[in-house]
Design a protein around this nucleic acid. Structure first.
Lengths: 240, 240
DNA sequence: AGACGTTTAAGTCAATGTGACCTTTAGGGG
DNA sequence: CCCCTAAAGGTCACATTGACTTAAACGTCT
């Protein structure tokens, strides 16, 4: 890169990486995808998957590539949005590394495979990680915390909850997403009323799904609306 | 920086900058601070203020420094939050430049002075910029658009509106912030009821302010609450 | 001093949304 | 056929909202 770009000796080039906070719901728990680092620094420590942004790719393309390489996940199937940039000069012992964190949400995803820089990849329950600041490498505890708050908050104001469900979903499934992520029970009847009265949240397909026991559930598809108006607030009420 | 960092020849170092979308309200209009570029590329074109992140400073510290250098504004007085990272490899003709956009909001700020890379700095009414995609340099039209949507949305769910007011504020001032940014009139009486019923939005001081005409207005201070529960939604209703 | 204009403050009321709870419906299995 | 279970649909008191009206507290003008 040309040196005339710099207008001060205090400026230096940086490495730019993307890190991914990938969430899914498995066996009734909110899970985040972690890797065990196969290279220094933090060799052997758990971390969020990620890697260097390459030449000629956008940040989002880099995130999609790492999603495929490190987690073996096809990014077209899930929701991907930028979370923010983390650039504390001391966040990486190797030097100035600015990372762009991405948030990815998907339905029950396949068991991941290890990638290039990772010994192995696995789903970790979020409940076991919260509070344990020391576990993850780099500033990944902070990134994970912000990602979690982002998810919990976006459930209220957007239809992002459908990203955790498959193409066809029942209202029970959707309600379970909220219950797992908010850690609080919701009234099934009121939830149904709220969702169906919010235009564009879900649209009926006419089909049904037959659970092992109980009345069959109507199947829905994601609607066109993204912002929920009015929002679906997590009130203090009804924590069982 | 050590070369062993790179794990692929496809990886390259990047320049990292911060760009600022600084908003204030002046003469009943939402204004954004623009500079006229004094260097290539886009020489002479209007742009958001910004510059390179220096060694040993965090991204936020870089944003605060640019705020001071390019706009002559003390960052301690205003609200500063990160908006997101923009890293399309074609966004800067000089090469790979990843910029971290920051959003800054403040009460009626002083007339700005030009800085190092800027011929001059000035407040531009947002209403004159919206839609005119060609005016701003780089991808700053997109950054400005996202910043605006962020502000409009955050007014609903957070107490960020107080950032546009001074330390002491009246409910009319606060309502005007909403009206200017949303471009829609609000019912004074209902607005008052909503704000005062939201615990922690504002707290009374006991003092009064005497306008040139009319009944004196009670003075309030910012409250402790950041998230508004329930939110203050901009319904379709009451557009004058 | 008193009437007036202006702005803040407070009150009314119908319509709507919410939380808690109950009843009915439609399956599968003993 | 009855029981269990989960979905679907309904009830009702209560809180919130939007539109509107009324009262209070200034400065100013006559």
């Amino acid at each position: 890169m040309d040196d005339w770009l710099k207008d001060s000796t205090e400026v230096e080039a940086s490495w730019v990486t993307v890190d991914l906070a990938i969430f899914t719901i498995r066996s009734g728990q909110l899970m985040v995808l972690l890797i065990e680092r196969g290279v220094e620094p933090f060799l052997g420590r758990p971390a969020l998957p990620g890697g260097y942004v390459q030449k000629n790719e956008t940040l989002r393309e880099g995130a999609l590539r790492e999603l495929r390489e490190e987690a073996g996940i096809d990014g077209n199937k899930l929701h991907l949005e930028q979370l923010g940039a983390y650039g504390d000069p001391r966040r990486d012992p190797r030097g100035r590394v600015v990372t762009i964190a991405y948030l990815a949400l998907g339905p029950d995803l396949p068991a991941p495979v290890g990638g290039t820089d990772a010994r192995r990849a696995y789903w970790a329950p979020v409940s076991q990680l919260e509070g344990k600041q020391a576990a993850l490498a780099f500033d990944h505890p902070a990134i994970l915390a912000e990602a979690l708050e982002q998810v919990r908050s976006k459930l209220e104001y957007t239809a992002v909850a459908t990203a955790f469900c498959g193409e066809l979903l029942t209202l029970s499934e959707l309600r379970t997403v909220y219950e797992v992520i908010w850690g609080q029970q919701l009234d099934p009847s009121n939830f149904r009323r709220k969702v169906l009265n919010t235009t564009g949240f879900v649209k009926p397909t006419g089909d049904q799904r037959f659970p092992p026991t109980g009345r069959p559930a109507a199947l829905y598809r994601r609607g066109d609306a993204w912002l929920l108006n009015p929002p679906l607030l997590r009130g203090a009420g009804h924590t069982v």
